[in-house]
Design a protein around this nucleic acid. Structure first.
Lengths: 206, 206, 206, 206
DNA sequence: CATGAATGAGGGTTCATTCAT
DNA sequence: AATGAATGAACCCTCATTCAT
């Protein structure tokens, strides 16, 4: 029993070693420019060992979305539930999103690249995760509409893209920036833009 | 004169044949999965012919950004100049953007993929184009602030990402959608979101 | 210990298999006309295997000069040291040279071709070996001059070329001959020519 | 008739232009590394034009040996005939040989390389020329033996290689030398080595 | 479980040669 | 005769995957 537990940990170790190594390598060079040998070297295992834990090179990417990002996106819901009003839920969501991506720069890179591919190598996983995120926003918006804090005349599908896209681009810009800066500090101003828009409202009224 | 014109067209023909074929192939399979042989076949030329017009496979992508997208992004400015007020400029810009990308689905795919890569194969071209777009939005926002239609307390850098990202995601969703729908119809509602945000404003005031 | 020895032999085997095969192929067709696939086939390995032992096709040639000919030229010194007088040293050197080249016909061919190229693919190696040979002759001549058996009014640099060239051509002729004959039997008459020249000396004096 | 003559000259011009250009290119890069396009460019003609004057790339090399070196080797006989005694004939031959090769460095390079190849691309031409040279030396030696100036116990075949090889190597060394020096000045000392050898003869007798 | 040597299919690129103009 | 764009066969090399140890 002890042995079994140890083995399992060992196994997990190798599995995670390889996965983490792969993410680093993919992040730097992109999936297609990365070789299995590079991943193996970075993970400190033999090339062949990778095939004991992953069906093939592609499968590493699939597992990445299953293991790493599912965990991250799962945490989003917890975070959203901590807030009560719609604007706060949105704020918490975006903050957490940026926080996580800032902490996991390499994950962020791989995520950005692969979700924008056409022939997605982890299509199913990406769709599932994307759906989770969109559902979360749907719920927030709908709650806001019930609360009366959000307009009722919105095409919710579009609002989702509006929010997702903006967050995405804020991350994307950060990833491609020459110098590093704090990504999380973008959260509140961004959410404010979502809510209020860019319009100058009449001062006497406001 | 006729001959000269013909020659020019002829010459352009091969170059454009290859470029258009390449875009189609890249759009379907991604750059790395595409082979020079596939491009040649689709263009109706021999493999070697490609190397008379392009330095190497990579150069096809670079030329694509120089020729195809530069043209498209150039047209954006013309469109923006046709409108006078800031909201209209924004509306015209987004409409045109979605129009062009809807008309050139394959270009759109390649554009989306390559601009989100980490190790960008056409880095210089992408940066230049991206800069053009951001400058355009900067101008619009600043004009709006002078006009009094746009809030003055905005971090313009963030506004740019907010707009670009949202448009990007609207296109991205369209590209990955199971069924086809009219992309351009998203333009006005989207711009309205930029301007007004999602907030429910006080009814007595509104 | 046995295992270690076996491993070493095994390892050496593949490396040498390829090298020997390459020499045969190069000898028959010349370096540029030889393909990696031909070498692989002759060595009984897969094409890719060659790149586990050699950096590229060119490197095979470089290794050939490092491994094969360095060994041969090293043996020359041993041979020279066995003799005491200058004429004998020269005799032993030339004999050994012709012997080795006769035994390794393919090595001889590759050697002849590559050392006469202009843009030498193994420049460094060839220079080094060539230098070894010239140094050996220098020593022999100088010793002969001290002994009194060799004229002191010689331009040693020229003597080296005189000897090297003659030996070279004797080998070259043998390599291009229609029918095979004993190369080593040329050694003594050739050395005699070096020493005595072709001149008929006055009989009363002689 | 005038036109015909003109045409012929024109034709010859192009033919020689290409041939001279090819020699330069071959000399710098070797036959296999040289491309038809490079030769055409250096000759100032179109790629296709080369095929109006030469059957293929190989044929350029064949023509080179037919045209350039046959001329040079023909001049050797004239030179030899100017002298009367054997040693002088030998001296004139070697002088002329070194003179010609010094004047035509590029020819010398191509000659050296191609005559040492195994699979000779101009086999027939090289054999013929080589034969001419060997015949010339045979005649000289035989005359010397009749004159009494050359030993009669020589294996003439070996003497030929001895002389040819030494001259060859003197040229080869010159071609590969870092700095330029006068090749012709080697002629007389070299011939003296042929005749007298390197041996120190008894002083009282000498 | 782990290894890493070996495999061989596949792809980018070059270049001698052709042929319509 | 001259051109040079077009061709496509051929080659070097990479790398995902396998399998004997």
């Amino acid at each position: 029993m002890v042995k079994s537990a140890t083995n399992r940990v060992e196994k997990n170790n190798k599995y995670h070693q390889i996965l983490e190594a792969a993410i680093k390598v993919f992040a730097r060079q992109g999936f297609h420019q990365s070789t299995v040998a590079q991943i193996a070297k970075k993970a400190g295992v033999a090339d062949g060992t990778i095939y004991l834990y992953f069906k093939n090179k592609n499968d590493i990417l699939v597992q990445f979305f299953n293991y790493k990002t599912k965990e991250v996106f799962g945490s989003f819901r917890t975070e959203v539930d901590r807030a009560d009003t719609c604007p706060n839920k949105l704020r918490y969501l975006v903050r957490r999103h940026l926080e996580e991506f800032q902490l996991n720069r390499e994950m962020a890179i791989v995520y950005q690249v692969e979700t924008h591919q056409n022939s997605r190598l982890a299509e199913a996983q990406i769709r599932e995760m994307s759906q989770m995120y969109r559902d979360l926003i749907s719920e927030i918006i709908e709650q806001g509409q019930q609360e009366g804090s959000i307009r009722k005349d919105l095409y919710v599908g579009l609002v989702k893209r509006f929010i997702i896209g903006a967050v995405d681009e804020v991350i994307n810009t950060w990833l491609h920036a020459e110098e590093d800066y704090d990504l999380v500090s973008m959260a509140d101003p961004l959410v404010e833009l979502f809510i209020k828009g860019i319009e100058q409202r009449d001062k006497t009224i406001d």
